[in-house]
Each structure stands twice: as C-alpha cells, then as structure tokens.
Computed example of a mutant assay.
Amino acid sequence: MNDDELMSGVREAFETLDPVPADVLAAARASIAWRAPHATLAELAHERPGRTAAGVRGAAARTLTFACPGSGIETVEIEVAEHGRHREITGRLVPSSPALVEVRHRDLPPDGITARAEPAGLFCVPRVPQGLVSLVFRLDDGSSIVTSWIRL
C-alpha cells in the first residue's frame, strides 16, 4: 500500500464516520471568494457595549474601533444598532477618506451589501443580517482594508 492509497482509505473512513456538515463546506467555499490577499488587516482594538442614554428612545448601539497599522487609515470606527433581525452599521474612517464599503457575511453573496464612504470618511450600511461580519474598505487609491470578523 502506498501513501496515496492510505490517504484515500483515511478520507473514506472520515467521510463515512464523521462527514463535514454541508453548511461548513459552503462557508469554506464562499471564503475563497472573500479573499483580499493585499489588504491590510484592521484588528479590533476597542469595544464598548451598547448603552442607551437616559431619556433617549431606541436600542443601545455598540461601538467598535479597529486599528489599521501600516495603512493610510489609522482607525475604522463603527457603531452597530439593532433593528430586529438586522443591524445598521454606521462609521467613519480616520483620517477621512472616500471608499467603497463591502459587508462580508456567510448568508450574502460575495458582492452582497455595499455602501460608499463619502470624502469625509462617513458611511452607513443598513439591513445587515445578524451573525459573523467582516467589512472591506476599497480606498480610492487602490489599497484595501479588511476588518477582523465580529459577531453582530
């Protein structure tokens, strides 16, 4: 028995005894379409849980700050407000810069929800499904920034 035959037998055993769930395979295949190999990773640096001010109506909004070392953007600040099953993400790029904002979520196609950050760096993305989300910012200079995954 050679190595290829041995690995084939191991693969068949795992497929029979402990198959990979279909949704895990679908998420893995979709993640390939989400690759942005030259993008700068913006990692979560600070999170403030949602609080509603006294006398103010509406749901509390969570505030998150992502640090972007090595890019022209120092931080990405977002605020997440709940609206039933959906979330609304508002935010800004610091320093300000125009950009295309893309939302990555397993239930959305690769080119799913997009919005435009205006020259002041402000953006709003309504009706984002709850769950794991990552944002991609495609700056007008051709560079990209990708946030780490967060649960909304």
Rank of each mutant, 00 (worst) to 15 (best):
D3K: 14
I113R: 15
L17W: 02
A28K: 10
A42W: 04
E47S: 15
P119Q: 07
H83W: 11
E12K: 10
R85D: 14
E12D: 11
L17I: 03
E118C: 03
C124D: 03
V80E: 11
I73T: 15
M7G: 00
S96P: 00
M1R: 13
H86K: 09
F14E: 06
G9N: 13
V146S: 09
E74S: 12
R85Q: 13
V146E: 13
S71H: 09
I113H: 10
Q130K: 10
I150D: 04
A39K: 07
P98K: 05
S143E: 11
E47F: 09
A59K: 14
D140I: 04
P95K: 04
E5Y: 10
M1C: 12
R29I: 04
A61Q: 10
P95Y: 05
A67W: 00
A36P: 00
W34E: 13
T65R: 15
V56N: 08
G84S: 09
A99S: 14
S96T: 00
R51P: 00
P129N: 07
V10P: 01
P98D: 04
I73N: 09
E5C: 06
T40C: 00
P129K: 07
T52Y: 01
V24R: 15
T16E: 10
F123P: 01
R62I: 06
F137Y: 15
T75P: 03
G84D: 12
A53P: 06
R87H: 13
A36D: 06
V56H: 13
S97F: 01
A27F: 08
R57Q: 08
P19A: 10
V20C: 12
H38W: 04
G72P: 07
A120I: 03
I89Q: 03
A99G: 08
R51D: 05
A60P: 06
T16I: 02
L64D: 00
A36K: 12
F137P: 03
L93N: 11
A99M: 10
L25T: 14
R57N: 02
T147S: 14
V94S: 07
M7E: 13
T90Y: 00
G112M: 08
I89A: 02
R11Y: 09
R48M: 07
G142W: 10
A13N: 08
V20S: 09
A13E: 11
V103N: 05
L41D: 01
E5F: 09
Q130V: 02
P110S: 01
A36V: 07
D3G: 06
D18I: 08
E74W: 01
T52L: 15
Q130E: 10
S96L: 00
R151P: 02
I150C: 02
R51N: 01
A61P: 02
H46S: 12
V103K: 08
E118I: 06
A81N: 05
E88F: 03
M1Q: 12
